[in-house]
């Protein structure tokens, strides 16, 4: 089966003044299309760094990332931007909606960037709002929504262009238990129901367990890549 994501000997070193920090050290793994994966590790272990490199948000020091068969290393800004827009979806720990756009408008933006016709985009946004049980909050600004509601909108936005892969960086970190469950349920169901690949980043063992595969990170080094049988 085709790999949606291939991480090859990925190394990231940050230079902070005179001190050099190796956030990722020679990480390699593959993720098949329609499969999901949890990256588990304590704070500062390099999880976010891994997501940033794999998602083409930041430059790598060494190694390579191949998404959907395409190395992202030498892509132009336009190409990598289009990649992020069309093929990938991101959900962040910090809730990252545009404060000046309503819930629906936030969901519409990726589709407008892609060039989806307006009516089609509106239709899709409505569909997603319904799916997130947020249809009656469509015209609310993020400041008028609770944290859980905001994160559901963020999930909807990540799904807007039907990406092949979703990157979620501790999406429940700032949420209460009930909302966390809701978000995890949605993300967990994506690969099963929609055939999307999901990369779930978490420091929570219990959340990680709900995904097919876990990569344990410790000080930027992959300790264990386990296939869990219960999934």
């Amino acid at each position: 089966m085709k790999n949606i994501l291939e991480v090859k000997n990925l190394t990231k070193k940050y230079r902070d003044g005179d001190i050099q920090v190796t956030a990722l050290d020679n990480i390699s793994f593959k993720l098949q299309e329609g499969h999901d994966l949890a990256i588990l590790g304590p704070s500062g272990s390099g999880k976010t760094t891994l997501l940033q490199l794999a998602g083409g948000l930041d430059s790598m020091t060494e190694g390579d990332v191949i998404i959907n068969g395409q190395s992202i290393k030498k892509l132009s800004d336009q190409e990598i931007s289009d990649f992020r827009n069309k093929t990938m979806g991101f959900i962040f720990q910090m809730i990252n909606l545009q404060s000046f756009l309503t819930a629906k408008e936030n969901i519409l933006v990726p589709m407008l960037i892609l060039g989806t016709p307006k009516e089609e985009a509106e239709e899709k946004a409505k569909e997603l709002l319904e799916q997130m049980n947020m249809i009656n909050r469509a015209n609310h600004l993020p400041s008028q929504l609770s944290g859980g509601e905001q994160q559901r909108i963020a999930v909807a936005r990540a799904l807007a262009n039907n990406p092949k892969i979703i990157f979620a960086d501790e999406p429940t970190g700032k949420l209460d238990k009930k909302n966390s469950e809701l978000i995890i349920d949605i993300l967990e169901s994506l690969s099963r129901e929609k055939g999307m690949s999901v990369v779930m980043i978490t420091h929570d063992e219990n959340i990680a367990k709900r995904f097919s595969r876990i990569i344990r990170l410790e000080n930027g080094i992959a300790k264990k890549d386990s296939n869990l049988d219960n999934k």
């Binding site: 289009d82 990649f83 545009q98």
Partner: peptide
Amino acid sequence: TREIGIFRAIGMRKKD
């Protein structure tokens, strides 16, 4: 910066 970062993360080009 955050607003710009978000737009960039969801696919806006530099040119945009």
